[in-house]
Every structure is written in C-alpha cells, then in structure tokens.
Design a protein around this nucleic acid. Structure first.
Lengths: 169, 169
DNA sequence: GGAATTTATTTTAAGCTTAAAATAACTGGC
DNA sequence: GCCAGTTATTTTAAGCTTAAAATAAATTCC
C-alpha cells in the first residue's frame, strides 16, 4: 500500500481530515439568538403599546419608504416572505384601513398597495417609538462596536447570498 | 425667565436635542436580513433533503444535547418559544416516532421528552449535513471575522437581555 | 399572430406561533 | 394541614407562514 512516510509538508490538508465546523455553528446559533431575543421584544412591545402585529408593522415600514406604493411582488421580495403570505396580510391591513389596493394601470395582473393617510400617521407614530426601542436594545454597544458589527454583517449577508445563489447553478 | 446666556459648555447635551437612531435601526435590519436569509435557506434544504421542518429539527437538536431528556418548560426556555407552541410540536414528533414522552417521576404536572433511537440516528445524519451548510453559508468570512462577529454578537446578546430585563423593574 | 414561457397573484392544506385563559399540581408560610 | 402563590402544561382563537397548485395576464420567440 501507499503508506510510505510523508517526507515534508505535513501541513497540506490534502488528506482531507474531516474538519468540524462547530465554530460556525455556534456563530449561527448566536446570531439566531440575538435576532430572536430582539424580535420577540419588539413584537411584544408593538402589541402592548399599539396593538399591532410585527408583520403588519414590517409591511407598513416598507410602504412608508415608497409613497407611490408597490406591487405585492415587490413587497414579497423586500420582506423576504412568500407571495401567498402577503395576500392575507394585505387583506387584513386593507380591512383595518391602513392601506389601499388599487389596480395597476399598466399590468392587469398586479395591484398596487399604498398607505392611507391614517395608516401613514399611525405608522410614523409607532416607528418613532420603535426606533428608541432598538437604540435601547443595542444600547451597550459602542459606536465602534456598531460600525464593526455592521461591517461584519455586511460580509455575512454577501457570503450567504453567494452560497444561496451558487447552489442553483 | 431663566434664559440668560449659557457661558461655556455648549457641548453638554442637557438641551436634549432629538437624537436620531437611524444607525441602530439599520444595524437591526441588517441583523434581521442575515438571519432571515440563512434561516430560509436552512429551512428549504431541510425540507428538500430530509423532508423535515425547521422547528422539528431545532427541537431534536435540543434533545440531542441532553440524553436524559427534559421537560416541556425546559425546551420552551431553550428554544425561546411559547409553551403552547411546544404541545403541538411535541405531539407531532411523538406521532412520527422521533421522540417519546414519559411522566416525570418527581412532578406529576410535567412530562419528560427524549429522543428515540430512531430519532437520534435521524437527527445526527441531518445535523452532519446541516453543519456543512452553515459552514458554507458563512464561508466567505475569515477566521478573524468569525471570532470578531462572535464577540460582537455576544455583546449584543447581553445588551438586549439587559434592556429586556430592565424594563420589568 | 400564436404557442410557449414567464410573471403576478390567489388558493389550499398543513403546520407554526403567539397570547391569554384554563387546569392541575407543587411549594412555602402559617 | 390549609391557603396563597407559583409552576407545568394544555386549550383556544387568531393570525402568520410556507410550499405547491391553480389562474390569469404579460412577454418572448418563432
């Protein structure tokens, strides 16, 4: 058999030792914990303070950024949720008077969603408090911490996108 | 009125100018995006590759760490989900033969949940692949990136916990 | 211009998730 | 030993979420 002593180069990893990735796993679990913690707290405060659900708040946040409104497909991509999910969410927000659906003038398949004046006013009041909550939740991080974290999460986002895109090839 | 000119110290922020926290908000949104991206991909691969849902995988992951099993309350805390949620999840995993419920010998209110041999074997096969997926998703981060991110997320976790605990006072 | 494909949305079925209320059992103080 | 308060779990109602199939309209390619 080919088991003569390897002269040099014991460091080349051509032998393919089964590397473990526990470190990456711990990193992922910690990322998930942070998000779950913060998301849960925000959800709870939105409910207590404004009697609104987090998905509704998120949807309104997207619409507030684009006064002319957008289609369900646009919303779906921005919010990273399924199309079917949006149908019901939009229906409920229309029923509560926060948004309106109008037929797209250029595409008879699509509808365009916009905030109503009431919806916008209510959203902005909520968003102002929401921003303080977030600042408080991240309050123990220094300016430098935040900027480094922002940068590292930017890298993470790109890395994940690359890994997700790449598989489809 | 007490509006005589302030002599020095124009930098003391006693005037309470309405500071904005857009930076923290962007940080939170980026954190959320990273988690959503990765979670969605893991969910999708678990379904395609093993026909299992993410919550079931997560539950089994907790149980795999503690061979003697644990109560629903323990699981609830570790997974950071509501108690009511677990009742149904556990029922489905019992029905599929992955876990068993046994009465707690010391507390007649509680039941103890454990992986079955089948459940453990299936979980470990899934976990091995899962670990590779995570490594791939974080693949563009250097060793240093990962260690810094781990550290900053540790700070974030503590900060959020402090903010959440503190409110209840 | 018509067929094939893509895109926008809805529907369906199943499962997940929460909050809140209800049950039941445990624990501590008297 | 009993009462009050706490803890473990389940139930309920409502809403969220996904994947997959269905529908309908737009686009692309001969």
């Amino acid at each position: 058999m080919d088991d003569q002593a390897i002269p040099l180069d014991a460091e080349t990893k051509a032998v393919e030792m089964p590397e473990d990735h526990r470190e990456e796993l711990r990193l992922w679990l910690r990322l998930l914990t942070c998000t779950t913690l913060i998301e849960g707290e925000v959800r709870s405060r939105l409910r207590e303070r404004f009697d609104v659900t987090l998905p509704r708040f998120d949807l309104m946040a997207q619409l507030d950024k684009v006064p002319e409104g957008m289609t369900l497909s646009d919303l779906s991509k921005r919010m990273m949720v399924s199309n079917g999910n949006l149908t019901g969410l939009v229906d409920r927000l229309v029923a509560s008077g926060h948004i309106v659906r109008t037929a797209s003038p250029t595409d008879r398949r699509a509808s365009v969603i916009r905030l109503t004046e009431t919806g916008r006013a209510e959203f902005r009041a909520m968003a102002a408090e929401h921003e303080h909550w977030i600042a408080e939740l991240f309050g123990d991080l220094t300016e430098k911490d935040r900027s480094e974290l922002m940068h590292l999460l930017g890298k993470t986002k790109l890395s994940a996108r690359r890994a997700i895109q790449g598989e489809g090839q």
